[in-house]
């Protein structure tokens, strides 16, 4: 790890639904980042980055939230969050929303947590033991926007940051579904605007994960996992979901 990283202030970005539904993902993120010696803080009273409104067609309605986020994280050197989709929204959309702002925009310093650990911290050791079979859920925004792995459509060298990180965990067996980065059908408001299609996509995706014989579906996007968890519970399927930070921090 680069030495000066220890002197950097890391702001933990916890998206709204992780705050409300998966607080443990937040706790795991905190543990994971501090375990590699980082100075991590959580600016209080975070709400939502605005992505659901924007993807639903009301991007302008998220401008106020963008301002709020930008203010909350102003004093940090890096902002790190456990959601590829939300981080990506901040990164890609905020510059447009905050065009007229003078202070440095949050976009340039925000990272998805796996990307941060992999590319900035460059971890090569994680003290974690997770003796289970997991299937990696390569989320659309994680793969095609955040470039966490090589998208299946492109002819570029194959890589996967999630796979690299999970490989550091002891006892783990890592799988990937056949349709390696097919959408699970969440898509924010899509999931309720087109519920039948969304559910059908979710069911197909879970089948594909189950075919790997994995016990857990894991990934960097709680939103996809939440959607699939909903389908799994409804259909009482023998597979569980777990955010990747919970696996990377399993022994912490």
């Amino acid at each position: 790890m680069m030495k000066d990283l220890k002197n950097m202030k890391i702001g933990l970005f916890i998206p709204c639904y992780i705050n409300a539904v998966y607080p443990n993902v937040g706790v795991a993120s905190y543990k994971l980042l501090t375990s590699v010696g980082l100075d991590v803080d959580y600016p209080l009273d975070q709400t939502c980055c605005g992505q659901p409104m924007a993807n639903g067609g009301f991007e302008k309605d998220s401008t106020k939230l963008a301002h709020r986020m930008d203010d909350l994280f102003e004093k940090y050197d890096y902002v790190v969050g456990p959601s590829a989709s939300c981080v990506c929204f901040v990164k890609e959309t905020y510059p447009r929303l905050l065009e007229k702002e003078e202070h440095e925009c949050l976009s340039s310093k925000i990272y998805e947590i796996c990307e941060f650990l992999h590319d900035i911290v460059k971890v090569n050791h994680i003290d974690s033991y997770f003796p289970h079979k997991v299937s990696i859920h390569n989320s659309c925004h994680g793969v095609r926007l955040m470039k966490l792995s090589s998208p299946s459509e492109l002819n570029i060298p194959k890589y996967s940051k999630l796979h690299n990180l999970l490989s550091l965990v002891k006892g783990i067996e890592i799988y990937e579904p056949k349709r390696v980065d097919e959408c699970c059908g969440f898509g924010g408001l899509f999931s309720i605007e087109e519920p039948e299609t969304s559910t059908c996509m979710g069911e197909d995706k879970i089948s594909d994960h189950m075919a790997t014989t994995a016990e857990y579906i894991t990934g960097a996007d709680s939103s996809c996992l939440m959607h699939m968890e909903g389908v799994i519970k409804r259909k009482k399927l023998p597979i569980k979901t777990k955010h990747i930070v919970e696996i990377l921090s399993a022994s912490l």
Binding site: A20, G26, K233
Partner: peptide, 16 residues
């Protein structure tokens, strides 16, 4: 949402 999925369960305490 509930047509084909169970609802997520709100945690007892938020991360905040």
């Amino acid at each position: 949402w509930g047509k084909g999925r169970e609802m997520p369960v709100i945690a007892l305490k938020t991360f905040n």
